[in-house]
């Protein structure tokens, strides 16, 4: 058989594509359930992290998450938990970063004047620069951070006071995006929960 003929080339190309893509389709299908499970756990882990609830394993995440109340207000799911006698609210946020959307969880106390914590679920920022928003050191800045005038300010270098967190050096774009995204999220929080048991 002439391996350089047109018919052979077309049949061969078709067959090769078919075989490889078929294997990929099967592999994708086999892992789909696992991937979906990973996403659920990732979302629940993020909510627990933002609320400052610690856990050891994925199983513990699922059981701890059962104690978190979920309430749908105006189409947005708000997660509620009690901690040391205080009510803590958490909600997902989403906004544009430098290269793509940044998605995460913001937790606030019931007065809506203190950020309780944040967690990043997904982002497409530059690894090693903007990507450092996922590092503990950066996220910990938001833990129990009072926001008296209702907005957060990302400042360059130096010490930070109420309503301020330090920007990531080399990642001004990402830092500014986080400021905007979190301020929008806090605005949304006040729309949804304003006037409630504050």
């Amino acid at each position: 058989m002439n391996k350089q003929s047109l018919v052979y080339t077309i049949v061969f190309t078709f067959a090769v594509c078919f075989v490889f893509v078929a294997i990929l389709a099967v592999a994708n299908d086999l892992t789909a359930e696992q991937v979906r499970q990973n996403q659920i756990v990732a979302q629940q882990r993020a909510v627990l992290n933002a609320m400052g609830i610690s856990y050891q394993s994925d199983e513990e995440v699922l059981s701890l998450f059962e104690d978190v109340e979920q309430e749908e207000i105006d189409g947005t799911i708000v997660y509620i938990t009690e901690k040391d006698g205080n009510r803590i609210y958490a909600m997902s946020f989403r906004g544009g970063g430098v290269w793509g959307p940044i998605v995460g969880i913001l937790a606030m106390d019931s007065s809506l004047e203190n950020i309780f914590g944040i967690e990043i679920i997904s982002h497409e920022e530059t690894p090693g620069l903007g990507g450092r928003i996922t590092e503990e050191q950066w996220k910990e800045q938001f833990r129990d951070r009072p926001v008296p005038d209702g907005s957060i300010d990302v400042v360059r270098g130096g010490s930070t006071g109420d309503g301020q967190v330090a920007a990531i050096s080399g990642a001004t774009g990402t830092s500014n995006s986080m400021e905007r995204i979190l301020n929008n999220a806090m605005e949304r929080f006040r729309e949804l929960l304003g006037g409630r048991d504050a």
Binding site: K3, Q4, T9, F12, T13, C17, F20, L24, T31
Partner: peptide
Amino acid sequence: LIPRKVRMMVQVLIIAFYVIIVDI
């Protein structure tokens, strides 16, 4: 088995196949 004319295309297909496997 690879015809010369589509040699590189088939190579890219094979490489992409393994990369997607790694990704999955």
